[in-house]
Design a protein around this nucleic acid. Structure first.
Lengths: 188, 188, 188, 188
DNA sequence: GATGAATGAGACTTCATTCAT
DNA sequence: AATGAATGAAGTCTCATTCAT
């Protein structure tokens, strides 16, 4: 699966620079940002950008994939902590909080989240990783009696997709407060 | 406040045709739909479209205003029914359900909803109407003991803004189920 | 078949300007000339060019169609003269001479000629007109005993397609001399 | 005249691979084929291609030169056979037939042929070889009384340049039939 | 007022050529 | 000497907006 010949060091560096710049530009100006601007921001020429991502769509997909990857990492880390601490609900809550917090990546992340539950073309590895970690996390929470027994993985995806990512910390916190009673059994 | 010279009858008709067409086209194809397509769908020429709305932004704003207006109507109707029936929570829930249901109007409605709570350019009459009706509705619900006492108008706006408007009826219903425990006192 | 609403006068003017400019530019610089250059040469903006011809291919096709049309006119005129004068061979020769002479239109005409016998998408009217006139012309020439009896319309097309359109008058004349013995019965 | 430092064996090999690939690609896709595609087809990297041919134009010229060389070989072989057999006309005809037959090389060959009579940059050796052989061949034919006495070398070049190289065998054969009466004295 | 043709900046993408590895 | 990544000018086409009819 790995390419026979590894990428040249500078190519790798450029790929990352482009991905970073694209993520930032898209987050700042939305996906309608021009390819030239992204190339500028990455400090490369357009041609280089197109060598790495033959199409704007490809670039967008790659940016989303990066986020899906990060989300998957986060989910797995959350699960590990939950297994160590025994406080699964807290990790569920923390996970949702952080997802909503990725406001910087705005639309892209939301699209990624929706992709998690809905679409997904190409390598689904990260989607799967995230899904499995989150499912286990939920089970742990249910076993603890802290997560409502009818909550499913799709519910989490739905909340991820509707999180107010572009809002202030206060609003995001309030959103969590509104959402939590629906997924936890906490009496309040 | 009313314009000195009233609009010619056909101009009024055109304005409505354009607004309807724009709403539909935007809902169907997103806001990146071309002005020509909208004009076509409205059965007028672009020039006419631009006479009524000097800018695409203006048109979008007008489309949103229409929805804000509808939402305001809905809010007031909900309030009236609540006052008659004494079941305010039900009306709050129904209201949120219908808002989420405006999926056909997709992006536009969400923008409208966000506009409600956050921005608001031009005539705020409808925003005000909606706000007042909803606030009263919430008070009624709290008085009944059915709505959590800490729920504010902004909370409703936040939920409206994050409703999964573009999803299926099942998903929207599930979202309501997840959301309701956060705003009601219902034990379940 | 004719559009209900006739083209606006200025649109017609522009269409012609574009077609003329395109013909000249293509003849001068080949079909790889840029759309912007053609627009400039026509004295219009690119947008106008694209309004009239949605695609470069469409423009090329239109330019060719113009030439096919001219060739058809020429063929019919040749036939008429032949019927009047009774000298069909002379008209065949003259026709071929003029076709080779359209050097200004270079590749485009050659493509058109090839299109006559081979391809042809859309309105074949002119192809048909040219074909019928030329066929009759050949029959006349054969009846006179001046055109070899085995010469077919396709032979004429083949010669049109291989005429040295881009060469000097002297070369074109020499080409005719080389070609004529093959189609005429003239003893020399 | 020979380079001081002989090419390295692998460089020679690469040069030939490139030339072959270029010839094939150009014949298949036309001269607008990309340098990368040619390099790929040759199994080398673009850099290597550019080391051998500093410019696309240079590469095209080299491809043409290959064909000119082949044509020269063909012309000389034809002459030799004519001298042996005493049937010069047959060799003229055969030569033209084979030239038209190089359809695979399409545009390139035609460009080469035109180059023969008109341009010619760099080493004219092959042009000269071809010219001398063909001229002698014509003289032989005229001496036999089979080739029209007014036919010149330029006439042959003109026919080579206008041969329907890209057409089917049937069409090419028909073209020969049309052309031959112009250059031979054969009564038919 | 309505119409729809014209405008032209800007978007995405390609490709001959250069240059670091 | 080969490799293939980087460059960036240029090409085709779109679309919000203007303006002659």
């Amino acid at each position: 699966m790995t390419p026979v010949r590894p990428m040249r060091a500078d190519a790798v560096r450029n790929r990352r620079k482009i991905l970073d710049a694209a993520g930032l530009q898209i987050a700042t100006h939305g996906p309608e940002i021009g390819m030239d601007e992204i190339a500028d921001a990455a400090g490369v020429a357009v041609g280089t950008l197109y060598r790495h991502f033959p199409t704007k769509t490809d670039l967008l997909a790659a940016v989303i994939a990066v986020h899906v990857n990060e989300v998957a990492d986060d989910a797995e880390a959350s699960l590990e902590r939950a297994q160590a601490s025994g406080r699964a609900v807290d990790e569920v809550v923390g996970f949702l909080e952080r997802v909503a917090e990725s406001s910087a990546q705005n639309h892209a992340v939301k699209a990624a989240a929706q992709g998690l539950g809905i679409e997904g073309h190409g390598d689904h590895t990260d989607e799967t990783r995230a899904g499995e970690a989150l499912r286990t996390l939920l089970e742990l929470g249910k076993a603890d009696g802290d997560v409502r027994p009818d909550i499913t993985l799709d519910d989490i995806y739905l909340l991820m997709a509707t999180a107010p990512t572009a809002q202030s910390a206060i609003v995001r916190r309030r959103w969590l407060d509104l959402i939590l009673p629906g997924i936890t059994t906490t009496r309040n």
